[in-house]
Nucleic acid binder design. Structure first.
Lengths: 344, 344
DNA sequence: CGCACAATTCAAAGCGCTTTGAAACGGTAA
DNA sequence: TTACCGTTTCAAAGCGCTTTGAATTGTGCG
């Protein structure tokens, strides 16, 4: 059995109160006493029991997140990358996560349970859908939270961090149109997720402004993996009027799309242009593609770190301010975009 | 403020004891009483406070893991995939994780803290090194743990789950040799990690048996990303005597290697053969490569699920049995391997 | 010399739950 | 009737910590 406060106090001939205060940096403790306590801690390897601490203070030093997972559901690299960002920041404040795996259909329940459990000080929500009931629920929970992304049809009167998805794909599409492209495909994430909806919106807007129509036959929605990227592109290329350019919602999907293009013996940047959204995944850099990829960029990891930081500061100094951030993305032109074929 | 046991008991005109027992399925509670309690719980939305529960029982319902992360350290897809496996299993038992981010150099400390905190019932260790001090530490901690991987120079008298890395790369190398390859490169993970060491060992053994020598100039160790795969392959190809075949420790690295090969205008499976270890990452399937990849396969996610399952059963029924599992890998031949050039 | 006051320290209550040991109750055997 | 028993319920202790309110000591000053 390891040492606890009581024993430690006995050993030192002090009361638990004093020892506790010495450890938690209260000013009313004699400097010398504090030193004695600290060195005793070092000798015995004493660590406060977090559960007890939590019960006593009500604070947990942890951030709760729901991890969407179930048998048969593929893991998402993007989730991992975001987590890395959260972690990077949390480690600096000695916070940890309570990762609650949950089947997607139980998520709402899981959130409730997590909040009520007293296990976490704050919650974090991702994979936002257009009209997401989980947000109303979070608001009712009286525990700080930050949403990554934001709803569409609903009032956005809650703290969030989102990137300007509409703007990103608007700019990207505009660039393609300027380059003379008229038929542009879209390989997107799941259609019920708001980032996907907004990206499409941005694209549609740019098309509209130029008198072009969005062609549903050149549109794909799915989990963002290499494989779906490949299949989507393959399908596009089989179209009687194949696109001369394609927008991809992730470099992971772009990977598959590129493969399909190569297999069709087309040249990227010449026969067909491609722009992908780059979440800055370390394992897959756009500049390292055979033909370096033009991208709209925004670091997912940085977003994670920022969310963690906001959550943590919100915990230490509760406030009702509804912080909202909308990050711009960068449009970085590399070799995968070029003038539409038969033009120049 | 939400309902707690005391209030609930008052409302029902029962003692806390009875309510608690009713909820935890003790037999000595009148069936009717139990029903009353359960419906009251439903109405009030009562959730037991986990911290209190934990303090009282000493059990936490959670698995602790240390997430190696820090600013400037890239996240690892493989970690995410393993986590997905852990999650898949944990969700079925209503367990959750305490994810403690930690800078790699603090990991030992973090483990200690985690164990002492009372926050977790079990620990999990990955990224094992040849002679890993963390294992001795875990053993001294008197908390169940499972290691993913296993040490090399140390006695392996602790519970682990590992795959037969040596065997995997031994077989793979043998296949290449049978196909006539004499110069084989190795693109591996970090050199201090045991899986990398063992894979190299397997390769060396097969070479040895055929009178071939391992050439350090055709060997690369690093984090397993696309980019390093590319650079390594590029370097190999610049060698005065480039390899005719290459072994990759991950499909992610293979991705880069393939790119380098393409860029050099060589044909995979003809000019150069490639075999990669496949962790079954959903975002990157070997059969979807331009030239489908021959692989040694073992699902990282399945390993995660298995580790979780063992950890959980170990928690519910403590035992001293030291379970050890060594999973065989499958060698799956696809189009990326062919006879050595100038032979056949 | 005695009192007010700051500096330290302490005992005890309380956080919300589980669990031990005892009590209450009706029924049954003696 | 009394003793005994199984069933069901309860009061109270305790998990390890924080925090409140009081006690103790030392100091400066009138």
């Amino acid at each position: 059995m390891s040492v606890n406060l009581k024993k430690l106090a006995e050993m030192l001939g002090l009361s638990q109160t004093t020892v506790s205060r010495a450890l938690n940096g209260y000013p009313e403790v004699n400097a010398e006493t504090r030193q004695r306590v600290l060195s005793a801690v070092r000798e015995t390897g004493y660590r406060p029991n977090r559960a007890a601490q939590r019960l006593a203070t009500g604070r947990a030093g942890s951030i709760g997140l729901v991890m969407p997972i179930a048998q048969g559901i593929d893991s998402d690299v993007h989730f991992g990358e975001f987590l890395a960002g959260l972690g990077e920041e949390a480690v600096r404040h000695d916070f940890h996560f309570v990762l609650n795996p949950s089947a997607p259909e139980d998520e709402e329940q899981t959130f409730k349970r997590l909040a009520a459990s007293g296990n976490v000080d704050a919650l974090f929500l991702a994979y936002v859908r257009a009209n997401d009931p989980r947000i109303a629920m979070l608001k009712s929970l009286s525990i700080p939270f930050v949403v990554h992304g934001r709803t569409i049809d609903q009032a956005t009167d809650y703290p969030f961090l989102d990137i300007d998805n509409t703007g990103a794909f608007y700019e990207a599409t505009r660039l393609l149109i300027q380059l003379g492209h008229r038929r542009i495909g879209l390989i997107n994430g799941h259609g019920h997720l708001t980032f996907a909806i907004r990206r499409k919106k941005g694209m549609v807007r740019a098309l509209d402004e130029n008198g072009l129509a969005f062609d549903e036959a050149l549109s794909h929605n799915s989990l963002m993996t290499d494989e779906y990227g490949y299949r989507a592109m393959e399908r596009f290329l089989a179209n009687p009027e194949p696109p001369t350019a394609v927008l991809c919602s992730s470099t992971v999907m772009a990977l598959g799309a590129v493969r399909a293009i190569n297999r069709a013996n087309l040249t990227i940047g010449k026969d067909i242009s491609i722009i992908a959204h780059d979440d800055v995944l370390p394992m897959l850099k756009p500049e390292n593609f055979m033909v370096p990829l033009t991208t709209t960029r925004s670091s997912l990891r940085a977003a994670g770190a920022r969310v963690a930081s906001r959550l943590i500061s919100r915990i230490s100094q509760p406030s009702d301010a509804v912080e909202q951030e909308l990050w711009r993305t960068e449009l970085i032109v590399r070799a995968s975009t070029g003038p539409a074929p038969g033009r120049k």
